[in-house]
Simulated assay, not measured.
Amino acid sequence: MAYNVLTNCPVCSKKLKITKLQCTHCNTTIENEFELSKLASLSKEQLHFVEVFLTCRGNIKEVEKELGISYPTVRGKLSDIIESLGYVQKKKSEVDEKKIVNMLESGEITAEEAIKLLKDE
């Protein structure tokens, strides 16, 4: 039975390093210091959300339907995951407001979507 890789120490909660890999077929063992991907540090819930987001090809409306959650909740979960991966999110600026208004005027988004985007600031 295989277990999920632990990324944090169960005693002190600090980040763990992988130091040993072994082939299940020929038992070759490699010992060194290996790094995990940033995605490995996400929780099961966050990884599930990422999988749904990717299978929906980033379409937030599809993610809403698939998970039965609201647009602001989808945006919030995305923000949490982005921060968990170590990326700093930029604050929205007036330029973004103008972009939202332009998208509304050109029919790319509905008035409701524009309101949600503007309230998210």
Rank of each mutant, 00 (worst) to 15 (best):
E45M: 11
K98I: 03
N102G: 11
E108D: 14
T29C: 08
I30D: 10
Y87P: 01
A114L: 04
S106F: 00
E64V: 04
R57F: 05
E108R: 06
K77D: 09
E105P: 12
E33M: 06
L47K: 15
T7D: 04
V101W: 06
K99H: 11
V52I: 07
S106D: 03
S37P: 13
L118C: 11
Q89I: 01
Q89R: 01
D96G: 02
I82F: 04
A2Q: 07
L85A: 02
E64F: 05
E35T: 15
E35M: 10
I69E: 13
I115N: 15
G86I: 00
S84C: 09
F34Q: 00
K15Q: 13
K116S: 12
G86Q: 02
S70V: 06
T110Y: 07
G107V: 01
G68M: 00
K98F: 02
V11I: 14
Q89D: 00
I30C: 04
A2F: 10
F49V: 09
K65A: 11
L21C: 08
A114F: 13
L21G: 02
K92R: 08
K38Y: 04
K65V: 12
E113V: 12
L21R: 05
E31Y: 00
P10V: 07
V74Q: 05
P10T: 01
K92A: 00
Q46V: 08
E97P: 09
E66C: 07
K38D: 12
C26P: 05
I100F: 06
I82Q: 02
I100S: 07
R57A: 10
K17R: 11
S84N: 09
L54F: 11
K119R: 14
G86Y: 01
V88P: 00
K91E: 05
L36F: 10
Q46L: 10
K119M: 12
Y87Q: 08
L47T: 14
S70H: 09
V74C: 13
I115K: 15
I81Q: 06
C56H: 06
T29A: 10
T19N: 14
R75L: 03
E121C: 02
E121Y: 01
Y3K: 12
